[in-house]
Nucleic acid binder design. Structure first.
Lengths: 209, 209, 209, 209
DNA sequence: AATGAATGAGGCTTCATTCAT
DNA sequence: GATGAATGAAGCCTCATTCAT
């Protein structure tokens, strides 16, 4: 594609190209080892262009995480609102986790890094707000469903937040762990099957005897 | 402590000071944002001193991880060898995980980062060997106990390696997750109680009905 | 020159500025005492710019040497191919040595240092190949001409490689020696006149009686 | 050798050990890449000991050079004073050069580096004086013999200093050149035979026809 | 909107030198 | 006289970011 054509496709296009490239590069290398130069060159753009769309590297990174959280929280809200038994909701949660994983298996690593304190120091207030908002939404929905399950006598009687932490943490931990251990080309299926078992175990373990 | 006293205590001391400071700084900031300057100044030493003890920043980092793995794998081997029922072994594993956590709650973050590929590029062969050795030892022991449990009909009949990944990944994931979510001064007890629940859930879920 | 003008001239310019400054600083201080900071500041650029053009300090250094070798070997090949008597070829060699010296009297010091093992540890394969290639070309041409002279009964019957070593080593040695002994501003003419005598002596001495 | 015994052998011993080790290490690595740590550990001493005998690394380096110059100038003066024909003196010079080379083939590289400006910046006045004194003595003797040869009609009528530069520069240049080109284990004989030819050529070339 | 050359702060690492023992 | 742990200045290099075009 020549420079001329690309220019005519407007700002939207370069933004999408950067987002796509960033997902890939951040996934492969993590936040620190990923360079702006590599991301933009994979997007067939120049470094300066990144800064037309994002305030800095961190905000691009955070943007990717927020995107997942948005997707997540929106879908999870749908489930929470449904008039179906808790156990069926939980099944759907499982599908949702898998869906997110399919959509971008590595983006979860970003969310993790984000909270691990390696990034998050030069974010604008606006982005920070969004991050908190969607994070709270997604997390809150999980908590409320668990609470519902406890009240319904389905799940063990523990602090619902702790249980949500366990679900969420286990999910992310297992993905990261298996990912890093099995650096194969097609690890996606392997991770998914392990995740499937993990979920079954956790849900089984959370059930009141 | 004055210069005089410190010097009197020999090389050992500065090494320990660096290890201690490194544990703290790496935990707080992660590998990349932790600087050699900060680690050594917290140890009340000058930057050059670090290199009397460690080849570079990465090897210091890896050293910390290996130390945990060593501690872990040595204790875990003791448990594996015992002539006690699998379920009792699992109980002891739990104590061991807690013991490691008590000994240095943050060091696990290092192990995780280590495998995430953000570090590990300038390690000497010797250190790399050690890392692999102790990593395999610790992991292998968990796998063999799970296998024993499956054969004894106690645990569900799934790939033991997958189950080990789930145990290990969940543990690390929950620690990281809860740690990063609750950035309080005294989160240790909070994390531990969540971990306790997590273990109970997972063990319960792994049991054959 | 203002920033505006310089930027307008593209990447080429900064490269040339660095090469020019590097020649000067390396000549004055040698490889080790020359600092990247000094080279780039003399080029009115910032340190980072050097690394847009050269992988590291060593490759810049080597580049300068290869440039001379290229110039040298290309011209020397022309002479070798000519259908003229050996003695005339030798005359032209002399002119060539002087030409290289005129073009950059100090660059020979680089070649020397290069082989002395004080540099040459972080070169990329590509640069290393080039260095060897042009080095072999230049040296080989001298050897073949000497061989021709021996066979024609013009020069004494000694190992042609040894004779080439003597010609080359004497040339470089005399330049370095006179340069370092007479640290005057205008030593160029002095060196050249000494070189002229040296060549006359060596050629005379190499003749079969 | 235990610490106790070494201590009883007095200062002289450690000084000699350092000198010996320094000759070796400087020869192998050049001034910059040779480290104080390596020199002293080869001498089975600790770094601090070097500074009991030499003000700094440069002065140790210079000391080695001065030692050669001393040896050189003293022997050369003997030759100058002899009532023998110039041509015979020249023969003896040749033997002397070879003798120095045999005694320490690499020390000449030091002298060269010394003048190339990579060292020589932190010398005490006293050492600087010595360096100049013995340098002038050795060089002056060569010049005076050449002058004698010119006056006797043996050598071509050129500036005697230039001729001395050529002899000296060629010698050092050939050693360095051949040394660096043929990094073999037993290059000493190879260098010597090349030097022999070189001398023959230069002396022959200097003769008046 | 896009470029990409240039920047320069900041980090890692080395190693000659010191000094308390 | 000797030690050797510790120092800390100095150097190389990276890379997120800027800005003139």
């Amino acid at each position: 594609m020549g420079i001329t054509e690309r220019k005519h496709q407007g700002k939207r296009n370069s933004r999408q190209a950067i987002i796509k490239a960033a997902r890939k590069v951040f996934s492969q290398k993590g936040f620190n080892r990923a360079t702006v130069e590599e991301i933009t060159s994979q997007a067939k753009l120049s470094p300066g262009t990144l800064y037309l769309h994002f305030k800095n590297k961190e905000e691009l990174y955070t943007f990717l995480s927020i995107a997942v959280l948005k997707r997540f929280s929106s879908k999870i809200k749908d489930i929470v609102g449904c008039a179906i038994p808790v156990e069926e909701k939980t099944e759907r949660y499982f599908d949702l986790f898998m869906d997110v994983y399919d959509h971008d298996p590595n983006i979860l690593i970003n969310l993790f890094h984000l909270q691990s304190g390696e990034a998050l120091h030069h974010l604008s207030d606006e982005v920070m707000q969004q991050l908190k908002k969607y994070s709270a939404l997604a997390y809150g929905s999980v908590v409320s469903t668990i609470k519902e399950g406890i009240e319904a006598g389905v799940y063990i009687n523990e602090c619902p937040m702790a249980l949500a932490d366990i679900v969420w943490g286990s999910y992310a931990g297992v993905v990261l762990w298996v990912n890093s251990k099995h650096l194969l080309n097609d690890q996606k299926d392997f991770v998914k099957s392990t995740l499937k078992i993990a979920f079954r175990i956790i849900l089984q373990g959370m059930k009141r005897k």
